[in-house]
Design a protein around this nucleic acid. Structure first.
Length: 466
DNA sequence: GGAACTCGCCAC
DNA sequence: AAACGTGGCGAGTTCC
C-alpha cells in the first residue's frame, strides 16, 4: 500500500517556487574581476613552480625518483607517494583510505614530520586555489559573470547542491585562500554584497523534532551558553570566561570538537583525539608540564595534570564520561528522539521531514536523525529566499539575489535598499516563517553582514550590521 | 579517448 | 556492536 505523506503538496510547491526563484538568481550571476583572477592565477603559478623546483632539488625527491625504477614520477600522484612512503621507506601510515591504501592527506603527511612533505602540502593548497576556484571562475564566466547552478533534486536530504561553478564551497576559513578566491567576486557597480545567515539553523530546527527542554532553554535563554558549559565540563575550568582568549579557544574546541560532532553521531574517541591533539596541541601518550596550548596559568597539560588527567588515555576516558552525561542527562529527550527515529525507520523504511518531504532508501542510524534536520533547516532558507525574491520583484527593487549557501542568502544590494532589505528579510525569518510553519518551537533569527560598496566578497567580515 | 573510479579538500 | 551528516570538483588512475 502506498501511504501518502500529508504534506506532499506543500513540499511540491516549495520545490516548484524554489526552482523558479533560484533560476532568477542563476540568471543574475556574480561579477568576476577577470583581470584580477588571471593575475592571481599567474602569481600562484610562479609560486607553485618555485616550490616545485625547490622540492625537486631535495634528497627526498631524488631518493623517491630513484625508487620508481625508471617509471615516470608524478609528485602529485598520491598512489605513488603512498607506495614510496609506506612500501619503500616502510613508514607507518597514520591512517588508511577507504580502499585500504595508506593515507596521504594533510593530517597523515604532517604527522610524518618530514619537512619536504610540508612543502608538498603547501603546493597542494596553492594549486587548489588556482585550479579549482580561480580557474573555475574563469572557465565558467560569461561576459565577466559566473552563473552558478543550484539544484533541488540531487541531495538525499532535500538540501540543495550547486555546480558550474560550485558557489557553496568557496574558501572562507583559511584567510589566504579566502582573500584570493573571494577577492575575485564583486557586486554590480555601485552595489554591495550582503549576506543574511540563519543563526544556528540546524540546532534550532532539531529542537522542533526532539523538543528537548534543555536544548530549548539554551536556544531561548540569552544568558545561557551551551558550548561554554560543555567546555567547562571537558576541560574542568572554574570561573570560565569566554572573554579570556585561552578560555575562548577551549569553547571553540568543545563546540567544533565535541558538541557538533556529537550531534552528527560521532563518538568520544574521535572527539577526545580532536580536542586534545588538534585543538589542544597535546601529544598522545603521557603528558608532561609545559605541553599544549597556553592557559591563564601555564599550559593545557599543566592544567589537566593538576586535575589528575595526566595522559591522552586518561583524557579519553574522561571524555567518555562526558559523552554519557551529554546524552543520558543533559540532552536526554534529544537522545530519546534519536532512538525513536532509528526504530521508526526500521519499521517503515522511511523518514518524514517536518516540511513535508520523505526520505526513503538505505540509511544508517545517524542518517535517520541527521537527514530530517539538515533538510528542514535548508527549507527554512529556501522559504525565505522565495519570499525575498517575490518581495524584490513586487517592489521593483534594484537589488538581486545571487546565491544561497544552505543557511544563508547572498544579495547583490543597492546601498539605498540595504536597510530596507535587511529589515524585511529579518521580518520574514523572525515573524512570518514561524507562523507559516507552526511546528517551529523556538525563535528564529538571522545575522546580516555586508561588504563596503564596490568591494569584493573578501571584505565581508569587516562590516557587521546589528 | 572517455567513463568510472579513488583521493584529497573546499563549504555548510 | 559500532563509531561524523550532505555535497562538488580537480587530478590521477584504471578499465573498456
Amino acid at each position: 500500500m502506498i501511504s501518502l505523506h500529508p504534506k506532499t503538496n506543500e513540499a511540491f510547491h516549495l520545490l516548484m517556487q524554489g526552482t523558479l526563484a533560484l533560476a532568477r538568481a542563476e540568471r543574475q550571476g556574480i561579477k568576476v574581476d577577470m583581470t584580477y583572477a588571471n593575475k592571481k592565477k599567474e602569481e600562484l603559478s610562479v609560486k607553485v613552480e618555485a616550490l616545485e623546483a625547490a622540492f625537486k632539488s631535495t634528497a627526498f625527491y631524488r631518493h623517491w625518483q630513484h625508487s620508481t625504477g625508471g617509471k615516470a614520477l608524478n609528485i602529485y600522484s598520491n598512489a605513488q607517494l603512498a607506495t614510496y612512503l609506506y612500501r619503500v621507506k616502510k613508514l607507518e601510515p597514520v591512517g588508511a583510505t577507504d580502499s585500504g591504501q595508506g593515507s596521504t592527506d594533510e593530517e597523515a603527511l604532517t604527522q610524518l614530520n618530514i619537512p619536504e612533505l610540508n612543502d608538498l602540502l603547501q603546493i597542494r593548497k596553492l594549486k587548489k586555489i588556482r585550479d579549482t576556484y580561480l580557474d573555475g571562475f574563469v572557465k565558467e564566466q560569461v561576459n565577466g559573470f559566473i552563473h552558478p547552478s543550484f539544484s533541488l533534486h540531487l541531495v538525499k536530504t532535500y538540501r540543495s547542491s550547486s555546480n558550474n561553478p560550485n558557489f557553496q564551497n568557496i574558501p572562507k576559513r583559511d584567510k589566504e585562500a579566502m582573500n584570493i578566491c573571494r577577492g575575485a567576486l564583486f557586486p554590480r557597480e555601485g552595489h554591495q554584497l550582503l549576506e543574511i545567515d540563519f543563526s544556528g539553523a540546524e540546532v534550532r530546527i532539531a529542537a522542533a523534532y526532539h523538543k528537548d527542554p534543555t536544548m530549548i532553554k539554551y536556544i531561548t535563554d540569552p544568558t545561557s551558553d551551551m558550548h561554554a558549559d560543555v567546555a567547562k565540563q571537558i576541560f574542568i575550568v572554574d570561573g570560565f570566561n569566554k572573554k579570556i582568549p585561552d578560555h575562548y579557544v577551549l569553547r571553540q574546541a568543545a563546540k567544533n570538537g565535541f558538541v557538533f560532532p556529537q550531534f552528527y553521531g560521532d563518538y568520544y574517541k574521535n572527539c577526545a583525539e580532536n580536542m586534545a591533539c588538534r585543538w589542544g596541541k597535546l601529544p598522545k601518550g603521557k603528558w608532561k608540564s609545559g605541553m599544549g596550548i597556553s592557559m591563564p596559568n601555564g599550559t593545557l597539560s599543566d592544567h589537566l595534570i593538576a586535575q589528575q588527567i595526566k595522559s591522552f588515555d586518561s583524557f579519553t576516558e574522561h571524555v567518555k564520561t562526558i559523552e554519557a552525561d551529554f546524552w543520558e542527562n543533559r540532552f536526554y529527550a534529544y537522545a530519546k528522539w534519536k532512538k525513536r527515529q532509528w526504530s521508526n525507520y526500521q519499521k517503515t523504511g522511511y523518514i518524514d521531514l517536518l516540511t513535508g518531504f520523505r526520505c526513503s532508501g538505505i540509511m544508517g542510524k545517524n542518517d535517520t536523525s541527521n537527514y530530517p534536520v539538515q533538510g528542514a533547516a535548508f527549507h527554512c532558507l529556501l522559504w525565505t529566499l522565495i519570499k525575498t525574491d517575490a518581495f524584490i520583484l513586487k517592489e521593483k527593487l534594484d537589488s538581486k539575489i545571487i546565491g544561497q549557501i544552505h543557511d544563508s542568502l547572498i544579495i547583490d544590494c543597492n546601498p539605498k535598499e540595504l536597510q530596507y532589505i535587511i529589515k524585511t528579510v529579518k521580518g520574514f525569518i523572525q515573524n512570518d516563517l514561524p507562523k507559516y510553519w507552526s511546528w517551529i518551537n523556538v525563535p528564529m533569527d538571522a545575522d546580516a553582514e555586508a561588504c563596503p560598496i564596490d568591494a569584493s566578497w573578501a571584505e565581508l567580515g569587516k562590516f557587521k550590521i546589528n
